[in-house]
Amino acid sequence: MNRYWELLKRELRLALRQGSDSMMVVGFFVLAVILFPFGIGPEPSILARVAPGLVWVNALLAAMLSLDRLYQADYEDGSLELLILTPAPLELLVAAKVTAHWLTTGLPLMAAAPLLAIFLNLNAYDLGVLLLTLAVGTPALSLIGSVGAALVLGARRGGVLISLLVLPLFIPVLIFAVGCVDAAQHAFPWTGQLAILGAILLGAVPLGLYASAAALRQAAE
């Protein structure tokens, strides 16, 4: 567990020193959502109707855009090989990386969501549900995305490839997250969808960790 914290601290220190990366993800997220009122018109009721989907689709894209730097830098400068050679299990490294990725993208996205709720005319109760789905759903995105990021190491045009690999696997998260907020908007019970989202997250933990570690091992061979 100690190693996990050390690795996490390393990742966070690197992210903070490089600074602007996670702000750029949030900037993309906010800007992309702001484009939609221009595209579909400023009618408040329409915006409130499509708000959960808009926020989620753009959160998905923002999370995906930040994936290619997850292992790429360590792969290029060789520190990934050293990290693989340490006696700590590789899954622990992946866990630390994914946690750091979520702290630097998922969490800032959640922080930006209330602002977007104002822009999109979403009321406070629905915003609360939306934040809950983001809290449960974005860690699953980081876990699944980590597999994709590890698989494309050393590939030609990895950044484009990653979207083709990862987006189809993101679809269940999107469906249940948006379904949850939709149900809340129409005053239906919504805890069921949230529970399934939680189940997806729990399933993604072992799958993401083991598959990412396997992918990193074959990338470093």
């Binding site: 698989l151 590939a155 030609r156 490839l161 690999l165 598959a211 992918a215 074959q218």
Partner: peptide
Amino acid sequence: ALSGAFDNAERGAKASAILAVVG
């Protein structure tokens, strides 16, 4: 796309095998 994206065919095979199992 993944199996064809590597210069080393063996790596493409391994990476896409992991993807197929995850999928």
